[in-house]
Nucleic acid binder design. Structure first.
Lengths: 205, 205
DNA sequence: AAATAAAATGAACGCTGTTCATTTTTTATT
DNA sequence: AATAAAAAATGAACAGCGTTCATTTTATTT
């Protein structure tokens, strides 16, 4: 059965190659300017081959969105060593924003674009597992905070949702270029300033 | 010169007709599924005519985004009668969210899509006037709050940015269907719950 | 009624995502 | 090693996209 095993591995390898090429082009010239033909050309395969390994463009985008969450996880790695949950929550916001700024195209795909969600609708498992896991981290951290006596009068989920929305909103305004086109006094530091407001807010809750 | 005047008015009327048709289709089937051909057909004109009145699709999208801000303004109307700035800030968040939920396609165009911003880059005036005005309202309200003694230790712009991001983030997660696909205990009320957290937060600042 | 100006048109261009009959390559069998 | 069967890769073709522009139609002026 070694042939079958090897075949399976080769299929996986080519699938990964397509995704790698797709991601390279996405980062280089944006998702909306990347075509299936571009991807095929990038890895020296024909258009048809791409469709042998992926159902459609949403399929590629969904797989890439999953890879994005793995990369986001790597940004979160350093958080796991932080004992104090409140401190961890603060740093979580920082890592989240850092990821969004350094990987804006991937971030948009993960949290804004319709493609990954539309792919879910067509598949068997309609749950957004990646989002659940990531949001679970926020919820767990806030839960620990509440258990430690912080955030009196707040519930876990609504507060977690608010915190998530807060950093997500800042990232969106930035990557969609709504900041630099509004007359901020300090447009270059507004993200940093906003994050500091986030820190102050956490202290006051 | 009455002919020239009439001609000018007719040009404006047809331009408005195109925008009206475009908006109808946008709301009906989404921006990404609306084509120039669709719009032309909707108002019984040819494709070429649309290009006589608009430079390109971004031009249409930019004009429509401006209309969106006018509609947002109508949601804000009731706020102007509220004396207390803190109360006004609370209601501002509510009206903002209400607009986003009831006009999700327009909201996306106004605050997320690249088209209106890209159109600005190609035009003479690169400023995002609509965004400046809307954000100015948030800044003014928060400034009044600070002048009244609220929000001690906070600066106007960073706080305004944080508040904007907070409500914007909630709206984005909702309209991009990132909420109902995450296992919230109460997905139907989470927006409402999140808004309540926003109210609590304002009280604590 | 003829000449001029303005407005509207739709075929055509180079793209896009997607399909599928055909060809090429690989594997299994004799 | 030659042949048959299976698997993988291909790229031409399709319908639809935004956009252009020479041509036709309509409106205005002379």
């Amino acid at each position: 059965m070694s042939t079958i095993d090897r075949k399976a591995k080769e299929k996986e390898a080519l699938k990964a190659l397509i995704l790698k090429g797709a991601k390279k082009l996405f980062v280089e010239k944006g998702i909306e300017h990347t075509t299936i033909r571009n991807i095929a050309e990038e890895i020296n395969y024909s258009v048809g081959t791409v469709y042998v390994y992926f159902k459609d463009k949403n399929d590629i985008l969904h797989d890439l969105h999953t890879i994005g969450f793995q990369e986001l996880d790597s940004y979160f790695m350093e958080l796991y060593t932080i004992e104090d949950p409140k401190e961890r929550l603060k740093k979580l916001g920082f890592s989240y924003i850092k990821f969004a700024i350094e990987n804006s195209e991937m971030y948009d795909l993960m949290f804004n674009l319709k493609a990954p969600i539309e792919f879910l609708k067509d598949s068997e498992n309609e749950d957004w597992d990646e989002g659940c896991t990531a949001f679970g981290l926020v919820k767990k951290t806030i839960e620990e905070c509440i258990n430690k006596g912080y955030f009196k009068g707040h519930s876990v989920e609504p507060l977690a949702f608010m915190v998530w929305s807060l950093v997500h909103g800042m990232c969106c305004l930035e990557i969609h270029q709504r900041i630099k086109n509004v007359n901020f006094t300090n447009p270059d530091t507004i993200l940093y300033d906003g994050y500091n407001e986030y820190l102050k807010m956490i202290e006051k809750l």
